[in-house]
Amino acid sequence: MSRTLPSVLVLALDTSSAACVAAVVEHAEGHAGRRECVLAQRSVVAGRRHGELLAPLLSSVLADAGQQVHDVDAVAVGVGPGPFTGLRVGVVTATALGQALGVPVHGVCSLDAIGAALPGRVAVAGDARRREVYWAAYEDGKRVAGPAVDRPQVLLELGVDRVVGAGATLYAEVLSGLADPTGPQYPSPVLVAHLALGTAGAAGAEGLPGTAGPDRLSPAPPIPLYLRRPDAVLPGPAKRVTA
């Protein structure tokens, strides 16, 4: 591909699902419009080991891309919603990388990094544990509802044609015919990079429906999207030890 400078090298990552995903994307803007070149991407199913696996994954994806970490011009990160412990690993890693490198850090809703690339009326559901899902609904790549956390039954009332993501696989029975196990399970790091630079739907973006509104898919500050308050019980009066 013929590149027009200046270009921006983006390191994108997401740890909001059971996977750690990362990509190195070169984003160029010139006379021919915006161009994106995916230099490398990697993912690893982490379960609950995001803390161990993310940093080596970033190191590998940069090596795959033939880039040095100090060449990175921007960091993009999925800010959830997702299980808290893994989510925090990604967000704090991105923030620290940005600070150490002196480059901006952009946060993106992790569900958008699945839903923004899907045509039609689709819900994306992630595993929120406790028999609930993190979800958002999209119309031709534009988020129209969510993100929120609810019982999977709520997805039946959205008027979508299918549900994708780890939550769809997990609750296929509840979702009757809506669950689409062939859809993406984890956020795409390439989409994280793409959305972070605000290029969703822009001319030249490949594989996107092209109708995403900037109001719904614009980058957010890199702050975790928890959607739940911490479990903590206020103590009652001091318990008596004598009867």
């Binding site: 803390g51 993310l54 940093a55 970490v69 990604g90 704090v92 923030t95 620290a96 600070q99 150490a100």
Partner: peptide
Amino acid sequence: AAAKAYALA
């Protein structure tokens, strides 16, 4: 996670 990111960067 923060420390690893600083060391890596």
